Simulated assay, not measured.
Amino acid sequence: MAVKDDIRSAARRPAKESGVYFAVSACSVIAVLLLWWTASRNPWVNPLFLPSPADVWSAFADIAREGYKGSTMLAHIGASLRRIFTALLLVFVTAVPLGILCGRNRLIRAVFDPFIEFYRPLPPLAYYSLLVLWFGIQDTSKVILLFLSGFAPMFIAAVYSARRIPADRINGARSLGANGFRLYAFVIFPSCLPDLLTGLRTAVGVTYATLVAAEMVAAVSGIGWMVLDASKYLRSDIIYAAIIIMGIIAILIDSAIRLLIRKVSPWIES
Rank of each mutant, 00 (worst) to 15 (best):
L130D: 14
L130H: 13
L130W: 15
V132I: 15
L133K: 14
W134G: 12
W134C: 13
W134Q: 14
F135Q: 15
F135N: 14
F135M: 15
G136Q: 08
Q138C: 06
Q138R: 14
D139Q: 07
D139G: 04
T140A: 08
K142A: 01
K142T: 00
K142M: 02
K142Q: 00
V143N: 02
I144P: 02
L145K: 10
L146H: 02
F147L: 13
L148I: 13
L148K: 07
L148A: 09
S149R: 12
S149F: 09
G150F: 07
P153K: 01
M154H: 06
F155G: 01
A157I: 10
A157P: 11
A158M: 00
A158S: 13
V159C: 11
V159T: 11
Y160F: 09
S161Q: 02
A162L: 02
A162F: 00
A162I: 01
A162N: 01
R163P: 03
R163H: 05
R163I: 02
R164A: 03
R164M: 05
P166Q: 05
A167L: 07
A167Q: 12
R169P: 00
R169A: 06
N171S: 09
N171H: 09
N171L: 12
N171Y: 08
N171C: 03
G172R: 09
G172A: 12
A173Y: 04
A173E: 04
A173G: 03
A173S: 09
R174C: 04
R174D: 03
S175T: 06
S175Q: 07
G177N: 10
G177L: 11
A178C: 13
A178G: 07
N179R: 14
N179I: 08
N179D: 10
N179H: 15
G180R: 08
F181C: 02
F181T: 06
F181E: 04
R182N: 12
R182I: 13
R182W: 08
R182F: 12
L183D: 03
L183W: 04
Y184Q: 05
F186Y: 14
S191R: 06
L193A: 13
P194F: 01
L196M: 03
L197H: 03
L197W: 01
T198I: 11
T198V: 07
T198K: 08
G199C: 02
G199H: 03
L200M: 12
R201T: 08
R201D: 11
T202D: 05
T202Y: 10
V204H: 10
G205A: 14
